[in-house]
């Protein structure tokens, strides 16, 4: 039986992962490997864009739902796992 910390550690043990943030349904970070300022900034922005993406998916097919959202920046990538408004953001460094 493994808990929250073990699951997050397992994800973070992946070589390319730089950190994770877990957001609750209000977009407030509840677990984070970054400082609180960074976490809440990402929390705000990511929950907004995820809500947009989810509404787009549901508009296209009301039976369907958003599972995963990848956003690629110039230097990194974030992968967002979504379910019941809970969000897990995984930060991934890109190889040079």
């Amino acid at each position: 039986m493994d808990g929250v910390e073990e699951t997050l550690k397992r994800i973070e043990s992946n070589a390319s992962v730089a950190g994770t943030i877990v957001l609750n349904s209000e977009g407030v970070p509840i677990r984070s490997s970054f400082d609180s300022g960074t976490s809440s900034r990402y929390g705000r922005e990511v929950s907004e864009i995820t809500a947009l993406a989810r509404s787009a998916v549901r508009d296209l097919d009301p039976q369907n739902d958003l599972q995963l959202l990848c956003i690629r920046f110039n230097k990194r990538e974030i992968i967002i796992g979504a379910e019941n408004n809970c969000l897990l953001i995984v930060f991934k460094n890109l190889p040079e």
Partner: peptide, 29 residues
């Protein structure tokens, strides 16, 4: 919030989403 107790359902959520994310990470790399 950050250090608070595990909200109900968080473990289930993470476990469900973990498999998908790891798969995607490997595929991505």
């Amino acid at each position: 919030n950050l250090n608070g107790p595990d909200p109900p359902g968080l473990v289930d959520f993470l476990r469900r989403v973990e498999e998908l994310l790891i798969k995607e990470l490997l595929k991505n790399s």
